[in-house]
């Protein structure tokens, strides 16, 4: 376990490992996303109340679920970076922020588009939607904070603290539909007790959630590779890579 932990701290090892993972994971992920989208768009029956507009669920829910999970990844990486001063954790935290922001943006925009035919409005300032907007600002805050500091060690510390403080928002997002009156429907998929979604709609949704988790992993590795190269540009292995003119 500790050997693996130490290996993760080695930039060239992680760079090469990410290259070989991405070679098969990225095409599988893109195929899964296309397949899942076609399944949800064309091969499921419409919702009896919302009609065909409900098909947005196959991108809205996975994007939101993974945006929330991604925040935990960022906060844990931030904690590891603060406690053990591990360079790779700092890189992972930094790499998570733009991906999380992109996924939160997708969740908010697709939710807004879904809201128009369903609720009759593009936007309401209710608890779920507002707390998701705060999540977007937290992700963008980490990106901006990192860029604001000249001293990158200090920047990493500040970002780690911001991401840890921001974790308060995650249970609020999860529970917002139960704690406050909201236009947003409560969770349809429940791990404890029965789900309130038909299996014919549940399976493509679970498939798309898995595909979005894979997308997050791919994007995280892709962003980490750039960060690793930029930080290690003075080392012999990066110079050798540049001389080869190959990206791995």
């Amino acid at each position: 376990m500790w050997t693996l932990f130490h290996k993760f701290g080695s930039p060239p090892w992680l760079y090469r490992l990410s290259g070989s993972i991405l070679r098969w994971l990225l095409p599988i992920t893109l195929l899964a996303l296309i397949g899942g989208a076609i399944w949800g768009l064309l091969f499921t029956a419409p919702d009896f109340r919302q009609g065909n507009s409900y098909r947005i669920i196959y991108i809205h829910v996975p994007a939101a679920v993974v945006a929330l999970a991604g925040y935990y990844v960022m906060a844990i990486a931030g904690a590891v970076s603060l406690i053990w001063r591990m360079k790779m954790a700092d890189i992972a935290m930094r790499a998570c922020a733009p991906i999380g922001a992109a996924l939160t943006f997708v969740a908010l925009v697709t939710g807004s588009i879904w809201g128009k035919p369903t609720w009759g409005t593009w936007w309401v300032w209710d608890a779920r939607i507002t707390s998701m907007l705060i999540l977007l600002f937290l992700y963008l805050g980490v990106v901006a904070l990192y860029e604001a500091y000249e001293n990158k060690a200090l920047a990493a510390k500040a970002c780690a603290i911001l991401s840890l403080v921001g974790t308060v928002n995650i249970p609020i997002i999860y529970k917002s539909v139960d704690w406050w009156y909201s236009l947003h429907q409560p969770a349809s998929i429940k791990f404890t007790g029965g789900s309130t979604i038909d299996p014919s709609m549940l399976y493509p949704l679970l498939f798309m959630i898995t595909a979005f988790y894979c997308l997050f992993t791919c994007a995280l590795l892709l962003n980490m590779r750039v960060e690793i190269l930029q930080r290690e540009q003075r080392t012999a292995w990066v110079k050798a890579l540049a001389n080869k003119g190959a990206a791995g």
């Binding site: 419409p46 009609g51 065909n52 507009s53 098909r55 947005i56 809205h60 588009i113 879904w114 035919p117």
Partner: peptide, 11 residues
């Protein structure tokens, strides 16, 4: 999509 196509496809 019974009038919902613009919303669904744009999303």
């Amino acid at each position: 999509m019974d009038g919902h196509g613009a919303f669904v496809w744009s999303a």
